[in-house]
Protein backbone atom coordinates (compact mmCIF):
# COMPACT_ATOMS: atom_id res chain seq x y z
CA UNK A 1 0.00 0.00 0.00
CA UNK A 2 1.17 3.49 -0.85
CA UNK A 3 0.18 6.81 0.65
CA UNK A 4 1.46 10.26 -0.18
CA UNK A 5 1.50 13.88 0.90
CA UNK A 6 1.47 16.75 -1.53
CA UNK A 7 4.27 19.29 -1.19
CA UNK A 8 3.09 22.49 0.45
CA UNK A 9 3.55 25.74 -1.49
CA UNK A 10 5.01 28.94 -0.06
CA UNK A 11 5.18 32.07 -2.18
CA UNK A 12 8.65 33.56 -2.46
CA UNK A 13 8.59 36.96 -4.20
CA UNK A 14 7.34 36.09 -7.69
CA UNK A 15 7.77 32.35 -7.52
CA UNK A 16 6.56 29.50 -5.35
CA UNK A 17 8.67 27.07 -3.34
CA UNK A 18 7.19 23.62 -2.69
CA UNK A 19 8.27 21.87 0.50
CA UNK A 20 7.90 18.18 1.48
CA UNK A 21 5.90 18.64 4.67
CA UNK A 22 4.21 15.61 6.16
CA UNK A 23 1.70 15.25 8.93
CA UNK A 24 2.12 12.84 11.78
CA UNK A 25 1.39 12.35 15.44
CA UNK A 26 4.27 12.46 17.90
CA UNK A 27 3.80 10.82 21.26
CA UNK A 28 5.66 10.78 24.56
CA UNK A 29 4.96 9.62 28.08
CA UNK A 30 2.65 12.55 28.92
CA UNK A 31 0.71 13.37 25.75
CA UNK A 32 0.70 13.48 21.98
CA UNK A 33 0.57 16.23 19.36
CA UNK A 34 -0.63 16.22 15.77
CA UNK A 35 2.00 18.09 13.80
CA UNK A 36 3.26 18.82 10.32
CA UNK A 37 6.99 18.86 9.78
CA UNK A 38 9.64 18.99 7.12
CA UNK A 39 10.73 15.56 5.91
CA UNK A 40 14.47 15.93 5.38
CA UNK A 41 16.43 13.11 3.76
CA UNK A 42 19.60 15.13 4.40
CA UNK A 43 19.16 15.01 8.16
CA UNK A 44 20.55 11.97 9.95
CA UNK A 45 17.96 12.10 12.71
CA UNK A 46 14.81 13.90 13.87
CA UNK A 47 15.19 17.15 15.80
CA UNK A 48 12.55 18.84 17.94
CA UNK A 49 12.55 21.90 20.21
CA UNK A 50 13.04 21.46 23.96
CA UNK A 51 9.60 22.83 24.81
CA UNK A 52 7.89 20.12 22.76
CA UNK A 53 10.06 17.40 24.30
CA UNK A 54 9.17 18.59 27.79
CA UNK A 55 5.44 18.79 27.05
CA UNK A 56 5.53 15.30 25.51
CA UNK A 57 7.22 14.03 28.65
CA UNK A 58 10.21 12.54 26.85
CA UNK A 59 12.95 10.94 28.89
CA UNK A 60 16.48 12.03 28.06
CA UNK A 61 18.91 9.16 27.71
CA UNK A 62 22.14 10.92 26.82
CA UNK A 63 23.85 13.98 25.45
CA UNK A 64 25.51 14.68 22.14
CA UNK A 65 26.46 17.38 19.65
CA UNK A 66 24.58 18.34 16.52
CA UNK A 67 25.98 20.12 13.49
CA UNK A 68 24.43 21.56 10.36
CA UNK A 69 26.02 23.09 7.28
CA UNK A 70 27.86 25.64 9.41
CA UNK A 71 30.80 24.86 11.68
CA UNK A 72 28.91 25.66 14.86
CA UNK A 73 27.69 22.76 16.95
CA UNK A 74 24.63 22.52 19.17
CA UNK A 75 24.50 20.74 22.50
CA UNK A 76 21.61 18.30 22.40
CA UNK A 77 19.91 15.72 24.53
CA UNK A 78 19.07 12.31 23.11
CA UNK A 79 15.65 10.75 23.44
CA UNK A 80 13.06 8.61 21.68
CA UNK A 81 9.47 9.31 20.74
CA UNK A 82 6.64 7.41 19.15
CA UNK A 83 5.30 8.54 15.80
CA UNK A 84 2.09 7.64 14.01
CA UNK A 85 2.06 8.29 10.29
CA UNK A 86 -0.29 7.32 7.48
CA UNK A 87 -3.56 8.12 5.82
CA UNK A 88 -7.02 6.78 6.40
CA UNK A 89 -6.93 3.13 7.46
CA UNK A 90 -3.25 2.82 6.68
CA UNK A 91 -1.46 4.05 9.79
CA UNK A 92 1.84 2.94 11.25
CA UNK A 93 3.21 3.50 14.73
CA UNK A 94 6.86 3.08 15.60
CA UNK A 95 9.57 4.65 17.76
CA UNK A 96 12.30 6.91 16.43
CA UNK A 97 15.37 8.46 18.04
CA UNK A 98 15.24 12.23 18.39
CA UNK A 99 17.69 14.98 19.31
CA UNK A 100 16.62 17.92 21.44
CA UNK A 101 18.82 21.06 21.47
CA UNK A 102 19.12 22.46 25.00
CA UNK A 103 19.09 26.01 23.64
CA UNK A 104 15.48 27.19 23.93
CA UNK A 105 15.95 29.56 20.99
CA UNK A 106 15.99 26.53 18.71
CA UNK A 107 12.44 26.22 17.37
CA UNK A 108 12.63 23.99 14.29
CA UNK A 109 11.19 20.53 13.83
CA UNK A 110 12.71 18.15 11.31
CA UNK A 111 11.99 14.52 10.57
CA UNK A 112 15.28 12.92 9.57
CA UNK A 113 16.28 9.44 8.47
CA UNK A 114 17.09 7.46 11.63
CA UNK A 115 14.30 5.09 12.56
CA UNK A 116 11.93 6.65 10.02
CA UNK A 117 13.29 6.12 6.52
CA UNK A 118 13.89 2.41 7.09
CA UNK A 119 10.16 1.95 7.73
CA UNK A 120 9.19 2.93 4.19
CA UNK A 121 10.36 3.14 0.64
CA UNK A 122 10.16 6.93 0.33
CA UNK A 123 10.02 8.68 -3.04
CA UNK A 124 10.39 12.43 -3.39
CA UNK A 125 8.47 12.99 -6.62
CA UNK A 126 9.55 16.49 -7.61
CA UNK A 127 7.64 16.36 -10.90
CA UNK A 128 4.33 15.60 -9.18
CA UNK A 129 5.30 17.61 -6.10
CA UNK A 130 4.53 14.90 -3.61
CA UNK A 131 6.30 12.47 -1.33
CA UNK A 132 5.20 8.84 -1.48
CA UNK A 133 5.50 6.21 1.23
CA UNK A 134 5.43 2.48 0.70
CA UNK A 135 5.66 0.46 3.91
CA UNK A 136 8.47 -2.02 4.12
CA UNK A 137 9.42 -4.49 6.81
CA UNK A 138 12.30 -2.74 8.63
CA UNK A 139 13.72 -6.10 9.77
CA UNK A 140 13.79 -7.41 6.22
CA UNK A 141 15.25 -4.12 5.04
CA UNK A 142 17.99 -4.42 7.65
CA UNK A 143 18.89 -7.94 6.48
CA UNK A 144 19.07 -6.89 2.85
Amino acid sequence: MVFSFKYKPIKLSKRIIYRPLIKLTIQGNSQSFDIFALLDSGSDIAVIPLDIAELLGLEFIGENKLSGITNNKLDVKQSKMSVIVGKGHEQYKFTIPVLVPINRDFNKIIIGRAGFFNQFKITFDEAMKRVEFKKVDPKLYKIL
Partner: peptide, 19 residues
Protein backbone atom coordinates in the same frame (compact mmCIF):
# COMPACT_ATOMS: atom_id res chain seq x y z
CA UNK B 1 -9.59 20.84 20.82
CA UNK B 2 -6.71 18.83 19.41
CA UNK B 3 -5.22 21.08 16.71
CA UNK B 4 -2.62 20.41 14.08
CA UNK B 5 0.58 22.21 15.06
CA UNK B 6 3.45 23.06 12.78
CA UNK B 7 6.29 25.39 11.97
CA UNK B 8 5.68 26.94 8.56
CA UNK B 9 9.05 27.01 6.76
CA UNK B 10 10.38 30.44 5.98
CA UNK B 11 9.80 31.89 2.53
CA UNK B 12 13.46 31.78 1.60
CA UNK B 13 15.47 29.04 -0.09
CA UNK B 14 16.19 26.42 2.57
CA UNK B 15 19.14 24.08 2.92
CA UNK B 16 19.88 21.80 5.81
CA UNK B 17 20.92 24.09 8.63
CA UNK B 18 19.63 23.55 12.13
CA UNK B 19 21.47 26.52 13.62
Amino acid sequence: SKPLYGLVPEAVPLVFNVL
